[in-house]
């Protein structure tokens, strides 16, 4: 059952990721990236990482993709404004990515994974467990990330503001 779910989710993830790269219309790219993020959230649920699944949907589908959508609409991008790269560069890009994939596959093949529990531990991804780790061992980075957010917010406002001449 979970293998079937894994295959379905993986096929959807890979297909939507390919659509992101290969479609000409930026709007379709954004929409299929949203699908891709939802399927990755499905993978998290399959791995019983419920806290991360919810956070992933809130952060990515709720915040980041809305930002992307607004930007694409704001800049009025469409297929006409998108000039594809020249044929040579596209072939080079495909070969480069393919060779990276082969290299990574070879390194995976030659690695022996340590002894992992085969039925994965089920309680580690629950809100209670991750929350406890976050507020005890990782309290300082958690608080510092709020400063990062504050500076990113101010930076975004300053950068996107219209300059007065």
């Amino acid at each position: 059952m979970s293998q079937l779910l894994f295959f379905t989710l993986s096929a959807m993830t890979i297909l939507s990721a390919l659509v992101v790269v290969f479609t000409r219309k930026p709007m379709y790219s954004v929409l299929s990236l949203i699908v891709c993020f939802f399927t990755i959230a499905g993978h998290y649920i399959l791995l019983n990482a419920q806290f991360l699944a919810i956070t992933h949907i809130i952060v990515y589908a709720g915040a980041i993709m809305v930002l992307f959508l607004f930007t694409v609409m704001l800049l009025n991008l469409n297929a006409d404004s998108d000039v594809p790269k020249s044929g040579k560069l596209r072939i080079a890009a495909t070969i480069t990515a393919g060779m990276l994939f082969v290299t990574l596959l070879a390194s995976i093949k030659s690695t022996t994974l340590g002894d992992f529990a085969f039925p994965p531990a089920s309680d580690k991804g629950l809100v209670q467990h991750v929350g406890q780790r976050l507020f005890t061992d990782y309290l300082l980075p958690f608080e510092i990330s709020s400063i990062l957010f504050l500076s990113a917010m101010i930076g975004a406002v300053v950068l996107a503001k219209k300059e007065k001449h």
Binding site: A49, G125, L134, Y138
Partner: peptide
């Protein structure tokens, strides 16, 4: 993280999400 029964990896993923959100906000600006 799920297969090794250690939730440290999930906390790292949380922080990666934080950084990604900040990066997207500044990048789109």
């Amino acid at each position: 993280s799920a297969y090794s029964g250690n939730s440290d990896g999930q906390v790292f993923v949380f922080f990666i999400m934080v950084v990604a959100a900040a990066e997207v906000a500044v990048g789109l600006a």
